[in-house]
Amino acid sequence: MSIQHFRVALIPFFAAFCLPVFAHPETLVKVKDAEDQLGARVGYIELDLNSGKILESFRPEERFPMMSTFKVLLCGAVLSRVDAGQEQLGRRIHYSQNDLVEYSPVTEKHLTDGMTVRELCSAAITMSDNTAANLLLTTIGGPKELTAFLHNMGDHVTRLDRWEPELNEAIPNDERDTTMPAAMATTLRKLLTGELLTLASRQQLIDWMEADKVAGPLLRSALPAGWFIADKSGAGERGSRGIIAALGPDGKPSRIVVIYTTGSQATMDERNRQIAEIGASLIKHW
């Protein structure tokens, strides 16, 4: 067993022997301040990774656009098919120029040779490549099948209805392509620590998230040296922004954090800054 596999296998073990965790309302004060600064709703939840206990939450059962955070769930569904012998990570998928959609920095470079399922998941999570996500959605049967996968996990809230990039439209009061912070946090925890996926697939999923290259201005910008984070960000229309993450000190994750916002007129930089400040408060009061 590799060191990384050992780390993920012992996530519940280490967490069980940690000192009790206590909620700190100071972080919620910052979440509410972010709402004021952005002029928009902000949803927040913080779960203990081992027990699933909610440590703090704000608007945990209000719907927010998922945006690209759905790509972690998508690759979880792909990995479940791999575990069941219905898919192979090494299978190569070929596609054409007509398949390319807006923001496809990886797939646009491989029109000639195609990409493997493993490479597509890596591109979808680490670079948020939209064509990679659409190609992977095709392998599982489309958005409705991802929703069905989530329902089978016990998540009857999260739903995907459309493809990239239309799913980022974020129309107010439109339930399409949305989740709730509580539902997303619980589902992410199941994917990373539950028995739904094999140990190898859980490790692969967290490795992809740990290698995320496009979430630097968010929670990662607030992390002290030595902290662990595996995350996936999302951005959408109407001032929408979000991030889902597993993080913790001492090089291992111990909490799940989900943050979503929508309806702001603020710039992307300002949305990023507010999420980073929430992260800084979380870490300060850990």
Rank of each mutant, 00 (worst) to 15 (best):
N173P: 00
A133V: 04
L160H: 06
G279I: 15
L111F: 03
L111G: 04
K190H: 12
A170C: 02
D83V: 02
L136A: 07
V72S: 07
Q203K: 12
A123D: 02
T147S: 09
Y103V: 13
W208E: 09
A170N: 07
I140Y: 05
N168D: 14
R271T: 13
M180P: 14
I171W: 01
K252C: 13
A84Y: 01
L100W: 14
E270Q: 14
R271H: 01
I125G: 08
S264G: 04
D250S: 12
L223G: 02
D207N: 02
T27L: 08
P253E: 07
E61H: 09
E62I: 07
I45V: 12
T139C: 01
L167D: 00
A148T: 07
Q274V: 08
E102T: 01
V258F: 07
T131I: 11
N98D: 11
R271D: 14
R59Q: 09
M184C: 06
S104N: 00
K30V: 15
F58Q: 05
L219N: 15
V157P: 10
I256H: 14
A170T: 00
C121E: 00
R91G: 10
A77E: 05
D212I: 00
T158H: 12
I283S: 11
L146H: 01
L73M: 07
S68G: 15
E166L: 13
R271A: 10
R59G: 04
S281Q: 02
E277T: 05
H94K: 11
L136Y: 05
D113L: 04
D155Q: 03
A148W: 06
C75W: 00
I278K: 05
L205F: 04
N272W: 08
N168E: 15
L247T: 10
L135V: 08
D269S: 12
V101W: 00
G154Q: 08
T187W: 00
M153S: 06
M268W: 10
W286P: 05
D113E: 06
T131N: 07
S233C: 15
I244T: 13
I275L: 13
A200T: 05
C75V: 04
S96H: 05
E35M: 08
E277H: 10
T138C: 04
P105I: 09
E195V: 00
E277S: 07
L136W: 07
H110E: 01
T27P: 08
V31L: 13
T69P: 09
I140R: 02
K252F: 15
T126D: 06
I283A: 08
R162S: 00
V117A: 06
T27Q: 08
V257E: 14
Q88E: 07
E108C: 05
K190Q: 13
L38N: 04
V117N: 01
L188N: 15
T158Q: 13
L188C: 15
S128E: 14
L160R: 08
L136C: 07
A245L: 13
G154S: 05
L49I: 03
A215N: 15
L49K: 01
S264N: 01
H285L: 01
S122F: 11
I244N: 12
R220E: 11
L49W: 03
W163H: 12
T112Q: 04
R255G: 11
V101K: 14
N168Y: 13
A182G: 08
I45R: 09
R189P: 14
L282A: 13
E195A: 00
D113M: 11
E164K: 00
R271S: 13
A84S: 06
G251D: 03
S254H: 06
E145K: 13
W163Y: 14
E175F: 05
E195I: 00
K252S: 08
N152R: 10
L196I: 07
S233H: 15
S201A: 05
V101P: 13
R162H: 00
A246Y: 10
R273Q: 15
M127K: 14
F58L: 04
H110T: 03
L196W: 06
I243D: 12
D36C: 05
S57L: 05
H156A: 09
K213S: 06
D174V: 06
P172F: 04
W286R: 06
A211P: 14
S233Y: 13
T107D: 04
K144Q: 03
N152C: 12
Y44F: 10
P60T: 06
R159T: 05
F149E: 11
A225G: 08
P249C: 08
L73R: 01
S57G: 02
L167M: 00
G248S: 05
R59M: 07
F70H: 15
R238F: 09
L100I: 13
S221G: 15
R176T: 02
P249T: 05
S264L: 04
P25V: 01
I171E: 01
S80Y: 14
T69I: 14
L223E: 05
R159H: 07
I171Y: 00
G236F: 15
G239R: 06
S264R: 00
V82Q: 03
R59W: 06
E277N: 06
K213C: 10
Y95T: 10
Q97N: 00
L28K: 01
A230L: 12
K284Y: 10
G85D: 04
M180R: 09
E102S: 00
V78W: 06
A200V: 06
D48V: 11
W227N: 08
I278D: 09
S281W: 09
L55A: 10
Y260N: 09
T69G: 09
T139L: 09
H285S: 02
I229E: 08
A245E: 12
F149Q: 07
W208I: 10
V29C: 06
K71V: 15
G43C: 02
A280N: 03
L55Y: 10
M66G: 03
D212T: 14
D207R: 01
P249R: 07
K71F: 15
E62Q: 14
G76N: 01
L150S: 02
G76C: 02
K190G: 13
K190W: 14
A84P: 01
T69D: 12
T107E: 03
K284L: 03
A124R: 03
Q203L: 03
L38I: 10
I278R: 12
K53Y: 02
T107C: 01
G251V: 13
E87Q: 06
L146T: 02
F70P: 05
E46D: 02
I259C: 11
G242D: 10
I229H: 10
D174H: 05
V29D: 11
N168K: 12
L47I: 03
R162D: 00
